[in-house]
Design a protein around this nucleic acid. Structure first.
Length: 260
DNA sequence: CTAGATGTTAAGGT
DNA sequence: CACCTTAACATCTA
C-alpha cells in the first residue's frame, strides 16, 4: 500500500541505513520493473558511487549519488525496502539488491511487480516528464481550493490524481474524507468552502500523523478507519456502520451516517 | 478456484 | 481540447 506516508518512511529508512555508503555490487533481478532505462544504465550509475542524499515527490523516492545521478524508485502496490547488516540472505521477491561498502545490503523487494526502478541525472526532470503535481504535503489551502474549482469528477478521484497532487492513494483518500465528513463520490466542485477547508486540513493531518507513526496501520489512532477497513464495522466517529462502494474504480470504505 | 487487491496508465468517453 | 472513468497490467492471497 505504498502511498506518501509509506514512501516517506522508506526515505527515512534509506537515510538511516544506506546513506554515505558506496555501492560495491548491484544485482538487478527483475528487468520488468525498469522504467525507461537499461540494466547497464542502472548498474553504471550505482557501482562505485555512494549515496549522498534522498528526496521524495509523492510516491517516488530518489537517491542521489556522488556522480550526481539519481536512483529513482516507485513502490507500486507491494514494494518495500529491506536492509540487512550483513551480506548473503536475499529477501524473497528482491528485484534490486545493493551490496554496500560496509558489507551490508539494501534490498528493494516487490511481490507483485508493479513498481518502477529508474535512473536519471535530474530527479526534477524525471518527475516533470511524468507530469506529477506538487507533493501533497506542499499543497496549501489556496492551491487546494484552486485544484477543486471547476473539477467534474469526484473529490476522491481528485485526491488520488497524481497529476493534480502527488502522494495520496486509495487508503489515505478514504481516511481524509472519513474525518472531514465528506462522501467520497461527491463531485469536487459541489464542495462548500467549509468542506474544502476541512478536507484540506485532514489531508495534512492524516499524512503527517501517518508519517509520525511510521505508516504502520497497527499504530494509527483508534478513531481511524485505516486499521479496520471493512464493511459492517462500527464507525468510530458516530453510531453508524462502515459501508463500501466503488468510486472511480476503487473499493471505497465510508460511513453513510456522518459523511454527507 | 476465483475474485479482488494497495498503483499507474493507455484507451475510450463526455 | 480538457477532463474523467475504465480496463489492463503481474502476481499473490483470502
Amino acid at each position: 500500500m505504498p502511498e506518501l506516508p509509506d514512501v516517506e518512511t522508506f526515505k527515512r529508512y534509506f537515510d538511516a541505513t544506506s546513506l554515505h555508503k558506496r555501492v560495491e555490487h548491484v544485482h538487478l533481478h527483475d528487468e520488468l520493473l525498469l522504467d525507461g532505462v537499461s540494466r547497464q544504465k542502472v548498474v553504471g550509475v550505482l557501482v562505485g558511487e555512494a549515496f549522498e542524499g534522498t528526496t521524495r515527490r509523492g510516491k517516488y523516492l530518489g537517491a542521489r549519488t556522488t556522480n550526481d545521478e539519481w536512483l529513482i524508485l516507485h513502490f507500486g502496490m507491494t514494494g518495500s525496502l529491506q536492509y540487512a547488516q550483513s551480506l548473503g540472505d536475499e529477501p524473497r521477491y528482491t528485484a534490486l539488491l545493493l551490496e554496500l561498502s560496509d558489507d551490508s545490503q539494501l534490498a528493494y523487494i516487490n511481490k507483485r511487480r508493479f513498481g518502477k526502478i529508474s535512473a536519471a541525472s535530474s530527479f526534477d526532470d524525471f518527475i516533470e516528464a511524468r507530469e506529477l503535481g506538487p507533493d501533497a504535503l506542499d499543497v496549501d489551502l489556496p492551491s487546494f481550493r484552486a485544484m477543486v474549482a471547476g473539477r467534474r469528477g469526484s473529490i476522491k478521484s481528485l485526491l488520488m490524481n497524481q497529476k493534480i497532487l502527488a502522494g495520496v492513494g486509495n487508503v489515505y483518500a478514504d481516511e481524509m474524507l472519513f474525518h472531514a465528513g465528506v462522501m467520497p463520490d461527491r463531485n469536487a466542485s459541489s464542495l462548500s468552502e467549509r468542506e474544502i477547508t476541512d478536507v484540506h486540513a485532514w489531508l495534512m493531518r492524516v499524512l503527517k500523523t501517518a508519517i509520525d507513526r511510521g505508516a504502520d496501520a497497527d499504530r494509527m489512532p483508534e478513531s481511524w478507519l485505516l486499521p479496520r477497513r471493512a464493511a459492517d464495522a462500527p464507525c468510530t466517529l458516530c453510531n453508524g456502520m462502515i459501508a463500501s462502494m466503488k468510486v472511480s474504480g476503487r473499493t471505497t470504505y465510508f460511513c453513510p451516517s456522518h459523511q454527507g
